[in-house]
Amino acid sequence: MSTFMPMLYSAWDSDIAYSFRKSRVAVISTLLLLAMFLAAIFAPHLAPQNPFDIAELSLFDSELPPAWAEGGNPAYLLGTDTQARDVLSSIMYGMRISLVVGFASVILAAVLGVTLGLLGGFLGGIVDAVLMRIADVLLSFPPILVALLINGVLRGALPQSAQADSALIVLILSIGLTNWVQYARTVRGSTMVERRKEYIEAARTLGTGSVAIMVRHILPNVLGPVLVIATINLGMAVLTEATLSFLGVGMPPTQPSLGTLIQIGNEFLFSGIWWVVVFPAVALAVLVLAVNLLGDWLRDALNPKLR
C-alpha cells in the first residue's frame, strides 16, 4: 500500500483538465464569473441606463420595486433607488469598480509579495530576517484591521479635497499592502528550497547573475502556488473592498462600488425599499462565492493531498 496510493494520486493529479470537467462546481462558478466579468467590463454598452448621467434619470421613476412586483416597471428589472437610478445598472457599474479594485490590489499584493519573497529567500540574512518579522507582525493582525489602518493613514495624509478622487487608489493600496504576506512566505519557502538545488549551482557556475537566476529559474517554479493564492485572494480583496466601502471609508457615493451601494441601501432599510440593498448584496455574495469555489477547486486540483 505504501507505494500504491501515491501512484494512484499522481495518476489523478496529472490531469487538471479532467478534474475541471468533472467538477460541476468549477464549471458553474467559471461560467458565473465569466458572465459577471463581461457584464462589468461592458457595463456602459450593456446596462439599460447610465446611473451617473443625470439626464437619463427621471425622478418620477424613483423607488420603483422590481419589475415582477406590484407597481414595477419592466424598464427597471430590479427596481430603482431613491434617485431613480436603475438598480441593475448600478450593480453592473458597481461590479466594475469592485473588480477593478479587486484585481488591482491582488496584482499589487502578488507583485510585491513575490518580489519580497524572492529577495528574502534568495538573499537570506538580515534582509530575510527583517522581512519575515514584518510579515509576522502583519499576520498577527486581522487583515481587515490592517487594511482599515492603512486606509486611515493614507486618507489622513491626503488633503480633504483630494480624498474622493483618490478613493480608488487608496483602496487598492490599503488592500494590496495588506495581502502581500502570504505570497512572500510561500515564495520565500520555495525559493529557499530551489536555491539549494543543483541546477541553480550549475547556472551560477555558468556565470548567470542573481537576478537572472531568480527570474528565469526560480520564478517559474513558484507560479503554481502563487496562482492559487491569487485566486483565493481575489475573493478576499473584493470582500475587503466592499467592507471598507460599507464602513464609509471606501468608494464615495458618487462612484459607488457594490459595497457603497449596500451602504446606501442600508440607510433605507426601514423605508420598505428592500430591493435597493438586497440585490447588490446578492450580486456581491454570488461574485465572492464563485471566486471562492473556483479557488477551492484550484487548490485541490493542484494539490490533492490537501483534500
Binding site: G235, T243, W274, V278, L284, A285, L289
Partner: peptide, 29 residues
C-alpha cells in the same frame, strides 16, 4: 459554511435586520 465565508458579514447583518427587525419586528436593530 462556504456561504458563511463568502457572504460578507455586513450583508448577513443587514439580512438579519431585514428579517427579524423590519419584517417580524421581534428584535431591536
Amino acid at each position: 459554511s462556504l456561504l458563511g465565508i463568502s457572504v460578507p458579514t455586513f450583508v448577513t447583518g443587514i439580512l438579519l435586520i431585514l428579517l427579524f427587525s423590519v419584517t417580524l419586528g421581534w428584535l431591536p436593530s
